[in-house]
């Protein structure tokens, strides 16, 4: 029963966001854009966490998605928004499938650390790439959407609407996946891998698939972010960025696909206002917010919205 309600609620949220778009103040559109980009990445983190895995290097795929989107434009002069997102999906899917063969053997802190190592190697490579602007990165601009010209005044609104739709589709598909047979294995793997193996399911295959899905989500988030922000740099794969994703995922909770999306919005809002009203101590504000959530809401912010207790 809950599934139907989630799907319905998702559709309502997407519809409300789309309808509200033209009336929102511009700063709010950019706040939503950034939060949704993060939200999609954190959807992937949530899937990994449900499988019992935490990656300290998911910035790798976030960054790859963004650079793929940017480089399609640089190399082939393609600046269609859908193609840029598609580029992000393809590149992250290929890379994560390859790395997944290796990483799916790893668990716990070692999974986290090996992911971290890979993301930092990408960082090193990008910093050495003078043609890609080294640490300064380069600017990215989407000019068309499925062939239609979107430059000009309505650009932000178009980007916003596309982001809302992509987010809706991603959340919906992930929600369906989580409810599927393989999706339900995730929790079982987290609780006890041996039992899953005894049941006749392949732990490695499931971990691998979940890893690729989460990487692709991060790639989509990265590509959207590149289009949104209009600029990409290697900082996207530096470890504090990856840490931020874990941070938001823990802050949100993993009980529902809404949790990461809402958590990302709360995180961005807190940070944005902390930057503005306490420029000297915004890190402290973030740190304290996080401690408070972890101490008083162990199931994440989402546990505010659920009555029955859900295992975090």
């Amino acid at each position: 029963m809950t599934r139907d309600r989630t799907v319905l609620a998702l559709l309502v949220v997407v519809a409300v966001l789309l309808a509200a778009g033209p009336f929102l103040p511009r700063w709010m559109i950019s706040l939503f854009n950034v939060s949704m980009g993060y939200g999609i990445v954190v959807l992937g983190m949530m899937l990994l966490m449900r499988t019992g895995l935490v990656s300290f290097g998911h910035g790798l795929y976030y960054c790859l998605g963004a650079y793929a989107a940017g480089m399609i434009d640089q190399i082939w002069n393609v600046s269609d928004m859908l193609a840029m997102i598609g580029g992000g999906i393809v590149v992250t899917a290929v890379v994560s499938t390859i790395l997944g063969f290796l990483l799916s053997k790893y668990r716990e802190i070692f999974f986290a650390m090996l992911s971290l190592a890979f993301s930092m190697i990408l960082y090193g490579l990008l910093v050495k790439s003078a043609s890609l602007g080294s640490t300064d990165g380069f600017n990215v601009a989407a000019k068309t959407l499925a062939g239609m010209d979107i430059t000009g005044k309505g650009l932000r609104l178009t980007v916003y609407s596309v982001t809302v739709v992509v987010m809706g589709i991603a959340a919906l598909l992930l929600h369906r996946y989580l409810a599927s047979h393989r999706g339900r294995l995730a929790g079982a793997i987290r609780d006890n891998e041996l039992r899953v193996e005894y049941m006749g399911a392949s732990v490695r295959a499931t971990v691998h698939v979940n890893y690729v899905i989460s990487a692709v989500l991060a790639g989509i988030g990265g590509a959207l972010m590149a289009i949104n922000i209009g600029h990409i740099d290697p900082e996207m794969t530096y470890w504090p960025q990856s840490g931020e994703f874990v941070f938001i995922a823990i802050l949100s909770g993993t009980a529902s696909v809404f949790a990461p999306l809402g958590g990302a919005l709360v995180f961005e809002t807190v940070r944005s206002f902390a930057y503005e009203y306490s420029p000297n101590t915004w890190q402290m504000v973030l740190g304290i917010t996080m401690l408070v959530v972890m101490i008083f809401l162990p199931g994440g912010l989402w546990s505010l919205f659920t009555r029955k207790k859900v295992a975090a």
């Binding site: 716990e108 874990v246 941070f247 973030l286 740190g287 972890m294």
Partner: peptide, 22 residues
């Protein structure tokens, strides 16, 4: 969870960072 503990120390890290600055 180990990961929660890592993040607790990360939050602490952020707080101490600004503490040092102050």
């Amino acid at each position: 969870d180990e990961v929660v503990l890592v993040l607790v120390t990360y939050a602490l890290f952020l707080i101490l960072e600004d503490f040092i600055k102050l």
